[in-house]
Nucleic acid binder design. Structure first.
Length: 742
DNA sequence: AACTGTAAACTTTTT
DNA sequence: GTTTACAGTT
């Protein structure tokens, strides 16, 4: 809630939570109950009552949540002209990364580790499966990884896992778990789960580290406590073991991450864990109008494994939620776009509207429809930029620069762009590195023809390692310490001297120009990061470019989709239900309320998973302040095939409260928001057409078939042969001979 | 070694 | 409908 100031009045329970100082405290905060207000005011209150800010640790799940909390505490404190110097507000993962930067030597043997993303994890686990001589068609990387991740979330390290393994399956996993971890260790790398697991192990095993951290953080706060896993519980619990000043905030009804190892008993058993703890329920909803609160409450009451909790509001009844049945996903998207337009005319701002869905795959049709209608929109995908091929390549160069032991990064870049080093040369190098106990980059400087390398490969490898040596020397140089943009300079230099820039500027590929621009954007991102970093660390000693690069890469590794939600831009936000947790909008549309989608197919045969789906729906509904628009389509095309659907059981469960069911839209009722591009338009030889990716082009030739007609078009970047039905061409100027229908 | 085209798997949700 | 893996070709 943006209206938060020190003078806003609080309810008695809110007040009690804010003033609670010592001892364990659980705040059971229903949706819209002013949770963030309570947490931020409590922090401000602690500081005002004399607690030094650096003794306070507040943990969240996303960077965005951390940032918002930090900002609001700062705002509160400024009015009292106090300082928040040293206050730690961070995500669990970023906090653990920082702890391991200080103490990592004792658990993982290094403090300068690289954080592996899911693609890196995949490479590592594939290597592990191979090293264990197991068949990788029986052992799919994804499921092995899931098993390992599961163990790590439950604080089961390799040794423990091995001891407990009894059957063939578990023993095989144990073997791969060990090999996988060995690979990570020899590469000086950790995965996401390791950040938590290794921190927990540190706290359990190392008295000195534990002492240091519990002395430093006298007050611990955890947001979204229902989403913590066992490992996170142990981390918080160890830090707070002695002073017991732990305050957790959460709502069991909003627990939607059990699939990722979140352990709901953490919040349910809080009172058992901390005998004399205080529990404060916040049930009054300040966010949503009456009808919406009622629908949400009615739905969640269908969950059986649930602590009964009253959810109520004193706001007016407001609008009734609308449920609409549509023929297919295109009509669905159109109906949402129309509703957005209608509300926009009523004065609701686009940035106060959001469209939610169960799976990312649903975003495509919605996106297309919004684009065609010309309505500003953003898809919340913070990770998308860093998933791009060219960005991954550049990042791999940078990672190898700060961590020469990162063999996964080495393999990714040694021959991109191509330098005449193929798979045989690489496996030869791998053997060489293994027998000398060296990293691949280290070994690459030592190759010679005598070891069986071709002259071309040997020279290319030597040149490659020499480039890195030079970057390292310059990255450590004291000279650039005072330079205003040392990090951006370094990134730019790596992009250039790695050959990536040249590769994409001279390449013949159609999206090369875009890729080149993205590389430019990476440099801008580095500049931005550098400015922010320096503003936040003003009084620290100057950093070398390599130090900055280290921090930049850590930042890149820990971005999430939810971080991309920017309330400042005037656009409708499209995102998954999961990503919407913790946010609120005037208008919420939820698409795809169908069996198999919401609830998802995989939850159908498991009661507790089904309840999680219901909670997910509940989370979505409770994001809305004033308008709720629920849709389902009778047919939906997924993976290229159209299927009949059944409406979600959740729709039935919500009836009994006021709901407006709009009839399906009749064909003649479809407004002109979405002009069909094809229709009766024709493309002919000589026509000017526009293609989404290739741009403008001239039609040279058309080969007609009943299905799959091919069309030859001359674009600026070259001649292309496309299948007419799929090309999604836009006619720019028609020509009237030899016409062909779309 | 590098490039090209086709088969197959894929989709739940994410730090 | 998209991405990745692999096989075949130059």
């Amino acid at each position: 809630m943006s209206t938060d100031t020190k003078t806003t009045s609080l309810t008695d329970s809110q007040q009690e939570a804010v003033e609670h100082k010592n001892g364990p405290l659980l705040v059971l905060a229903g949706p819209g109950s002013g949770k963030t207000t309570v947490v931020t005011r409590r922090i401000a209150n602690l500081i005002a009552s004399g607690v030094p800010p650096w003794q306070i640790l507040a943990l969240t799940f996303t960077n965005k949540a951390a940032q918002e909390m930090r900002n609001r505490v700062f705002t509160l404190l400024e009015q009292d002209s106090l300082h928040a110097q040293g206050l730690t507000v961070s995500t669990f993962h970023a906090f653990c990364a920082r702890v391991l930067r200080d103490w990592g030597e004792r658990v993982i043997g290094t403090t300068t580790f690289t954080i592996y993303d899911s693609a890196d994890q995949r490479s590592a686990v594939k290597a592990a499966i191979k090293a264990c001589n197991l068949n990788d068609s029986n052992w799919r990387p994804a499921s092995v990884l899931a098993a390992i991740s599961n163990a790590k979330n439950k604080l089961i390290d390799v040794d423990t896992f091995e001891k407990e393994a009894s059957d063939f399956y578990t023993k095989s996993i144990a073997k791969m778990y060990r090999t996988y971890d060995d690979i990570l260790r020899s590469n000086d790398a950790v995965d996401f789960d390791d950040l938590l697991l290794q921190t927990a192990r540190l706290l359990e095993r190392d008295g000195e580290a534990r002492q240091h951290l519990e002395d430093r953080y006298q007050y611990v706060m955890i947001d979204e406590y229902q989403d913590t896993n066992h490992t996170q519980f142990v981390i918080a619990n160890k830090i707070a073991a002695n002073h017991r000043n732990i305050c957790v905030v959460g709502d069991p009804d909003q627990s939607v991450y059990a699939w990722r190892g979140a352990d709901i008993s953490n919040i349910l058993d809080f009172e058992e864990h901390y005998g004399e703890g205080t529990v404060i329920p916040l049930g009054r909803n300040f966010r949503s109008t009456g009808h919406l609160v009622k629908v949400a409450a009615t739905l969640i009451e269908h969950n059986k494994q649930r602590k009964e909790k009253k959810l109520f509001t004193e706001l007016e009844d407001g609008n009734e939620p609308t449920i609409v049945t549509l023929e297919n996903e295109h009509e669905e998207a159109e109906s949402i776009v129309r509703e957005v337009t209608r509300l926009q005319n009523e004065g609701v701002l686009l940035k106060e509207m959001s469209v939610l869905y169960r799976v990312n795959a649903l975003s495509r049709v919605l996106e297309d429809t919004f684009r065609k209608a010309g309505i500003p929109h953003v898809v919340a995908r913070g990770t998308a930029f860093y998933d791009r091929k060219e960005i991954k390549q550049a990042i791999s160069y940078l990672r190898l620069l700060v961590n020469p032991k990162d063999d996964v990064a080495f393999v990714r870049v040694i021959n991109t762009p191509t330098r005449g080093i193929g798979s045989t040369s690489i496996s030869r190098l791998e053997h060489l590195a293994l027998s000398h106990g060296m990293s691949l980059l280290g070994a690459s400087s030592k190759v010679s023809k005598e070891q069986g390398f071709t002259a071309r490969a040997a020279n290319a490898m030597k040149k490659f390692s020499e480039t890195f040596r030079q970057w390292q020397i310059d990255g450590r140089s004291e000279e650039s310490l005072t330079a205003a943009s040392s990090l951006a300079d370094l990134v730019e230099r790596v992009v250039r001297e790695s050959g990536l820039e040249e590769f994409y500027s001279t390449g013949s590929g159609e999206d090369d120009l875009e890729r080149l621009q993205n590389l430019g954007e990476l440099v801008s991102a580095a500049t931005e990061f550098e400015e922010r970093f320096e503003a936040e660390n003003e009084d620290s000693s100057p950093y070398t470019p390599l130090h900055l690069l280290f921090a930049f890469l850590e930042n890149v590794a820990l971005v999430s989709d939810a971080d991309a939600v920017d309330p400042e831009n005037g656009a409708v936000t499209l995102m998954t239900l999961h990503a919407s947790k913790g946010l609120e909008f005037d208008f919420i549309a939820i698409a795809g309320l169908e069996e198999g989608l919401l609830p998802h197919e995989r939850a159908k045969h498991d009661d507790s998973q089904m309840e999680e789906e219901r909670r997910l729906c509940y989370v979505g509904i409770t994001r809305a302040r004033k308008h709720l628009f629920l849709t389902h389509a009778k047919r939906r095309t997924q993976r290229g095939v159209s299927n009949r659907t059944m409406q979600s059981r959740f729709i039935q469960e919500m009836t009994g409260v006021s709901i407006t069911k709009s009839p399906a839209i009749e064909p003649w009722d479809v407004p002109d928001v979405v002009p069909e591009e094809s229709g009766d338009q024709t493309v002919t030889v000589g026509s000017l057409v526009r293609h989404k990716r290739f741009g403008l082009g001239k039609v040279q030739r058309i080969i007609r078939r009943t299905r799959g007609s091919t069309i030859t078009i001359e674009f600026r970047g070259g001649v292309k042969h496309l299948v007419l039905e799929y090309a999604k061409l836009e006619l720019v100027s028609p020509d009237h001979n030899n016409s062909v229908e779309f």
